[in-house]
Amino acid sequence: MVEYRLKTPLKEDEVRKLNVGDILYITGTIFSARDQAHRRILEYAEKGLELPFNLDGAVIFHVGPIMQRKDDRWVVVSAGPTTSTRMNSTTPKLLERFRVRVIIGKGGMSFEVAEALKRFGAVYCHFTGGAGVLAAKNIKEVEGVEWIDLGMPEAVWKLKVEDFGPVTVTIDSKGRSLYETVKKSVEENLKKIYQQI
């Protein structure tokens, strides 16, 4: 387990060296995106339209934050991760089309996503689910918002972060996944549990 302090935009070689279990603190800009934003990003890509934000070397955070308007700016109230599996179907294409390097969420992602992470050079990281206030503490400023018509949780929020973390690498770009390790031991445990039922 190694601790890394990374700055956005991220380069492929910086991310390829990360291993499952490593702890990251990210400084720079991260983008919130969940179900609806993923769909729209891919629609834009299909139609050849330019996105209103740059995903080259980007960090995507699966989050639907609570934001509050104060005077003429937005303030983050609470911003923990959402369940990443909902983005399983759209993520491989997203990784293929854009050079996203880090995805932060909770709950893990599918085998197909792990394959795409490996192929395109990106990692998936875990942030404690429900820890919305802890996450908000590391967000220094809301730089902007796109696609607010999707509603507060589904819009793409451009977030300025300083040492955002600790986030743990749970699927690396070498095809290793902490979820697969846990799944195997749970399957073993389940055999013993069935004997007691």
Binding site: S78, G129, A131, L134, K137
Partner: peptide, 28 residues
Amino acid sequence: PTAKTELKNILDNIESAEKLKKPLCQDT
């Protein structure tokens, strides 16, 4: 250590939320 870290984050988060009177999880 992983399980302890997760629970520590959860407990710290609750403490911060109660102190700051902010929604402890963004999914209200």
